[in-house]
Amino acid sequence: MKRVAGPKVADTFEIRHLRYFVVLAEEQNFARAAERLGIAQPGLSQQIMKLESIVKTPLLDRTQRLMKLTLAGEVFLEEARKTLNAAESALVAVTKAGRGETGRISIGYVASVAYAGVLTRSIASFRKAHPDVELQLVEMEMGEQLSRISEGRLDFGFIRPPTPLPPNVVTRVILQERLVVALPDDDALAGTGAVDLADLADREFITPRQAPDVGFRRNTTTACEEAGISPVIRPIGRDFTTIASMVAVGLGIALVPKSLDCLRLPGVRYRNIRGIHTTSELAIAHRKSELSAAVRAFITHNRSAAFPADAWD
């Protein structure tokens, strides 16, 4: 069976051939077209003849005194313009992607990040600078965020350290918040100003469902140790909204980030704590090596963002 040979590389046209032909058709004059293209007129003539040789049909009607396209030339002109526009669009798209201006970023966060305002400020300012990047947000427990980031199933996370990290994940603290104590509003100390943790030594503390060395469970024990007491931790809450509700019905008290006072549940009072310097840290988490330009841009944005430190007045 006889094999039909395909076109030789030398017989295929290039983008520049299309551009030469379009400019010539627009100028309808070899001299003006050559000047616009920045090439010599004989060189332009040779390239147009080469193009005609490649497509195997005349594109210019050379029987006329004035330059005129053949019917095939008119068809080719329309298609050449489409191809050049598509090539330009592709170039713009790949350039924007390489600069991190397009793409998709999956972002996990713990709910308390939203209370602190960090999430909304971060997303709003990034979207303003990168309007074509798609952001996917999902509230997620801290440990699951870190696992998914490590496995490549999540790009970025907002978490509350301390917590163990997978080997390929790094964090950076972007905000430190002071701690306040959440009390039932009928508690004897709820109507006072700042309180001493030592006065709460006989109370039961409610913390999130975490390991002893993780997140707010660790913050609670550290703050109490700083105040010279050993906390009794019994009730466990799924999240801070649940914890605040548990405080309201008298199941215990809780140390929470200052920003949680925006969660005005009935039956709960938030009071400042005297004499401790333990804080709640808010951090970003991401892979050590990141291939996506969009994700790298989001990492840079959050590493350099100005999140004001929590006031201590």
Score class of each variant (00 low, 15 high):
residue 182 A to Y: 09
residue 183 L to A: 04
residue 184 P to T: 07
residue 185 D to A: 02
residue 185 D to L: 03
residue 186 D to S: 04
residue 186 D to N: 13
residue 187 D to R: 02
residue 188 A to T: 14
residue 188 A to W: 11
residue 189 L to D: 09
residue 190 A to T: 13
residue 191 G to M: 02
residue 191 G to T: 11
residue 192 T to D: 03
residue 192 T to V: 04
residue 193 G to K: 01
residue 194 A to H: 06
residue 194 A to Y: 08
residue 196 D to E: 14
residue 197 L to A: 06
residue 197 L to R: 09
residue 200 L to H: 05
residue 200 L to R: 07
residue 200 L to P: 09
residue 201 A to K: 15
residue 202 D to E: 15
residue 202 D to N: 11
residue 203 R to K: 15
residue 203 R to P: 06
residue 204 E to F: 03
residue 204 E to P: 00
residue 204 E to T: 12
residue 205 F to Q: 03
residue 206 I to W: 03
residue 207 T to Y: 08
residue 207 T to L: 03
residue 209 R to H: 13
residue 209 R to Q: 11
residue 209 R to M: 02
residue 210 Q to N: 05
residue 211 A to F: 15
residue 211 A to H: 13
residue 211 A to Y: 14
residue 211 A to V: 00
residue 213 D to Y: 10
residue 213 D to M: 06
residue 213 D to F: 06
residue 214 V to P: 07
residue 214 V to H: 13
residue 214 V to Y: 13
residue 215 G to W: 01
residue 215 G to L: 06
residue 215 G to T: 13
residue 216 F to R: 09
residue 217 R to I: 00
residue 217 R to L: 01
residue 218 R to T: 00
residue 219 N to D: 12
residue 219 N to V: 14
residue 221 T to A: 15
residue 221 T to W: 04
residue 221 T to F: 06
residue 222 T to F: 04
residue 223 A to V: 11
residue 224 C to V: 07
residue 224 C to M: 07
residue 224 C to E: 07
residue 225 E to D: 09
residue 225 E to M: 08
residue 226 E to C: 02
residue 227 A to Y: 13
residue 227 A to F: 15
residue 227 A to S: 14
residue 228 G to W: 10
residue 228 G to Y: 12
residue 228 G to A: 13
residue 228 G to N: 12
residue 229 I to H: 04
residue 229 I to T: 02
residue 229 I to M: 08
residue 229 I to E: 03
residue 230 S to Q: 15
residue 230 S to E: 15
residue 231 P to E: 02
residue 233 I to G: 02
residue 234 R to G: 02
residue 234 R to S: 08
residue 234 R to K: 14
residue 234 R to H: 08
residue 236 I to P: 02
residue 237 G to F: 05
residue 237 G to W: 09
residue 238 R to I: 11
residue 238 R to C: 00
residue 239 D to V: 06
residue 240 F to I: 11
residue 240 F to E: 12
residue 240 F to L: 14
residue 240 F to Y: 08
residue 241 T to K: 08
residue 242 T to G: 03
residue 243 I to G: 00
residue 243 I to A: 02
residue 243 I to P: 04
residue 243 I to S: 00
residue 244 A to D: 10
residue 244 A to E: 06
residue 245 S to M: 05
residue 246 M to R: 05
residue 246 M to H: 07
residue 247 V to S: 11
residue 247 V to A: 11
residue 248 A to F: 00
residue 248 A to Q: 05
residue 249 V to H: 01
residue 249 V to P: 04
residue 250 G to S: 09
residue 250 G to F: 08
residue 251 L to I: 05
residue 252 G to W: 08
residue 252 G to S: 11
residue 252 G to T: 11
residue 253 I to T: 14
residue 253 I to N: 05
residue 253 I to M: 04
residue 255 L to H: 09
residue 256 V to H: 06
residue 257 P to A: 00
residue 257 P to L: 04
residue 257 P to E: 02
residue 258 K to C: 05
residue 258 K to N: 13
residue 258 K to R: 15
residue 258 K to E: 14
residue 259 S to D: 08
residue 259 S to T: 06
residue 259 S to F: 06
residue 260 L to G: 03
residue 260 L to K: 02
residue 261 D to W: 09
residue 262 C to E: 13
residue 263 L to C: 09
residue 264 R to Y: 04
residue 264 R to I: 13
residue 265 L to R: 15
residue 265 L to I: 15
residue 265 L to D: 12
residue 265 L to E: 15
residue 265 L to V: 10
residue 266 P to S: 15
residue 268 V to Y: 07
